[in-house]
Every structure is written in structure tokens, then in C-alpha cells.
């Protein structure tokens, strides 16, 4: 069964000026299928359409054409987030809220009972190493702590599908190693992962599939990923598309 499927998805950004409207293609005729248990990475240059793809899968953007399916069900709005967790590239949170308070709020949105919430929030805080700072306001958190908090909220509802937008972005070497280990652990327990990244050397260590998006078009699928070759293959795909 496919975990995520995009069927000929097109997104065009419209921008209204005073007397005219400009159009920019986000993604065009984009099709992709990611199976249950896959670790898939979408590679692309800046502005190639990676974030647009992530936002479309998450329902933050609406496609102009095409369909998106999560576990073979047409994108069904908010209900799918019981199965999907999202790690944003940059950790944007509400500065005046405490980390634990924020997690309780998010757990409440997932309809967890009071007891389930307490157990789950304590477990994720322990897992990401924020147990001792749970009562601090998020504005007092460092960049690294915010990334950990971000991870905590991603796995809070124990989703089967994880969408990680540039998970290695802003991490130091120790953080990168910890993130890689986490992703390997998630893969081991059977979660489906959809990643976007620039760090090809990291990606090829953890992904079994990868794809290249360039100027809004899906140009190549690597299935399986062959370690040591991904960087060259990626650059070749970009070059082919440009020529």
C-alpha cells in the first residue's frame, strides 16, 4: 500500500498587482508514490518546488490540478494528521508559551485523554532530551532546543508517516548524527518518512528512495538509492533537465 501518492499535481502561484496578475509555477504535473515503510528524500535546488510539495501534502496549499492521497484515501483535511507528523525546516513557535504547555495543547488537538496526554508528553520530552526545560518559555529556548522541541511535536501523536522538511538544517555535527540515528530508528520500527534535504551525503546514508525535483518538475527517481553515487546522479539529472 502506498503511504503518500501524488497524482499529476499542479500548483500555480498567483500574485495580484494593481492592474495585472503574475503567475509562477510551484510544481507541474507532479506524480510520485511512496510506499509504506519507505524513507524517501526529495532533492532539489533552492526554489525547485520542494517546500511547495511538502505544503501540498500537508494541505497548507491547495493544488490547482491533480490529487493527493494519504494511505490511499484522498487528502481528507485535518483527519489525516492523526497519521501524519510534520517537522518544519525552521522552528516557528509561540514565544510566550511553555514547551510542556504547548505539547499538552497539541496533544489535546489529537483527542488524547488526560492520562494519555501526560504519558505521551512526558515520553516525547524525555526522548528529545527536554525534560528538564519543559517549563521554560519557548522564547527562552536556544536554536538547538527549538529543533528538539520541533521533533517532540512531530512525534507527539505517534504518526505512522513523518514529513521532515530539511531535518538537518541548522544542526551542528553532533545534532546531525543524533538526527540520523533518530531517522534510522523510525525506519527500523516501520514508519514512512518523506524528507527534503540539500545534504546529499547524509541523505544517501538513510534513504532507500530519492527523487529529484527541478523547476517544479519531477525529473528522476532513484529506487533504490546507491550509496556513493547520489550526488553525481543528482547533478546529472539537473544538467540533463537544463540542457
Amino acid at each position: 500500500m502506498s503511504a503518500i501518492r501524488l497524482d499529476r499535481v499542479t500548483k500555480i502561484y498567483r500574485r495580484n498587482h494593481f492592474f495585472r496578475t503574475t503567475y509562477r509555477t510551484g510544481v507541474e504535473d507532479f506524480s510520485l508514490e511512496i510506499g509504506d515503510g519507505d524513507v524517501f528524500t526529495l532533492l532539489g535546488l533552492n526554489g525547485s518546488g520542494k517546500t511547495t510539495t511538502v505544503k501540498l501534502i500537508l494541505g497548507l496549499l491547495f493544488p490547482d490540478r491533480g490529487d493527493i492521497f494519504i494511505r490511499e484515501k484522498r487528502h481528507s483535511g485535518f483527519e489525516m494528521f492523526r497519521e501524519v507528523g510534520y517537522l518544519p525546516e525552521v522552528s516557528y513557535y509561540f514565544p510566550y508559551m511553555e514547551a510542556e504547555e504547548m505539547l499538552f495543547f497539541m496533544a489535546g488537538l489529537g483527542d488524547l485523554s488526560g492520562k494519555e496526554m501526560r504519558v505521551r508528553v512526558a515520553a516525547v520530552l524525555e526522548q528529545v532530551g527536554l525534560k528538564d526545560n519543559a517549563g521554560a518559555l519557548l522564547k527562552e529556548y536556544s536554536k538547538g532546543m527549538l529543533k528538539r522541541f520541533s521533533l517532540a511535536q512531530t512525534i507527539l501523536l505517534d504518526p505512522g508517516i513523518l514529513i521532515l522538511d530539511e531535518p538537518f538544517s541548522g544542526l551542528d555535527p553532533v545534532g546531525i548524527k543524533q538526527m540520523r540515528e533518530l531517522i534510522e530508528e523510525w525506519r527500523r520500527i516501520g514508519k514512512t518518512l518523506f524528507l527534503t534535504s540539500h545534504l546529499i551525503t547524509e541523505v544517501e546514508k538513510i534513504s532507500n528512495k530519492a527523487g529529484v525535483i527541478h523547476q517544479g518538475h519531477f525529473v528522476r527517481l532513484f529506487d533504490p538509492v546507491v550509496p556513493g553515487r547520489l550526488e553525481n546522479d543528482f547533478l546529472e539529472s539537473i544538467h540533463e533537465k537544463n540542457s
Partner: peptide
Amino acid sequence: ESKTIYTILTKPIPR
């Protein structure tokens, strides 16, 4: 603008 809304609307809550 600050994108804080992303992590909330990617939880099971209708807009």
C-alpha cells in the same frame, strides 16, 4: 507570516 500556524494546522483540527 511567522509560520507558527503550520505546526498547529498540521494537527487534527479543522481550520
